[in-house]
Amino acid sequence: MIAIEGLSKTFETSGGEPHLALDGISIDIPKGQFLSILGPSGCGKSTLLYIVGGFVPASAGRIRVDGRAIAGPGPDRGPVFQEFALFPWKTVRGNVLYGLLQQGVPRDQAERRVSELLQMVHLSRYADFYPKELSGGMKQRVAIARTLAYDPAILLMDEPFGALDAHTRTKLQNELLSIWERDRKTVLFVTHSVEEAVYLSDRVMVMTPSPGRQKAVFDIDLPRPRIRAELLLNRRYQEYLIAIERLVQDGGEDEA
């Protein structure tokens, strides 16, 4: 379980004025829950994720994972970024292998695991390709496989499908759901698509524009496994969409 308590973040800016990006975020995320964080651009969604990842220090408040305060990054929390952030000098195989070797998994065992992972994300044929030779959707699959490789209990996904075309996005959403339904990791999923948030999540946290505060938290009570075509006709699904869309809309102007 992740316990976030009174989390705030102030950035020192080059302009000299300190900039309040996150203000008093408090939320508990039970183990195995899929939580989406929804909000306009610039409201601090990425910052929140980076702080939970231990990449960026908080200015105030605290975060505990299974009761322990986080101190820097750790293999219990695996990030997936919108920009993929693959290692360009490594092949697909090398990228996925990295975490396993860092974890001290013996080489042959690691290689086998990489093969399984690549099969899972449908990239077996591309093992020896370099990231620059892949499409956006394929790159994000590699990034997901690279993170799943060291089996983090928590996935931190920052608009992972934001840079992809609609068709690829839908496909990857479904793949993510089927992976998640298999091992039920805790997921913090940042998005600015209401539809994506409701489709994937157990819970949706809506944030205010800058500075980011919690505006509302919705429990998404929809059956799983979720099938998009069926959901579209589901009355409750539609109501979630409308309610959350309204809430997001009256948040004012996007900072972007």
Binding site: F55, G72, Y98, G99
Partner: peptide, 12 residues
């Protein structure tokens, strides 16, 4: 790119 380093740090 810091995210390359973060990705590696998270991997251990």
């Amino acid at each position: 790119e810091p995210k390359l380093i973060w990705s590696a740090r998270a991997a251990g």
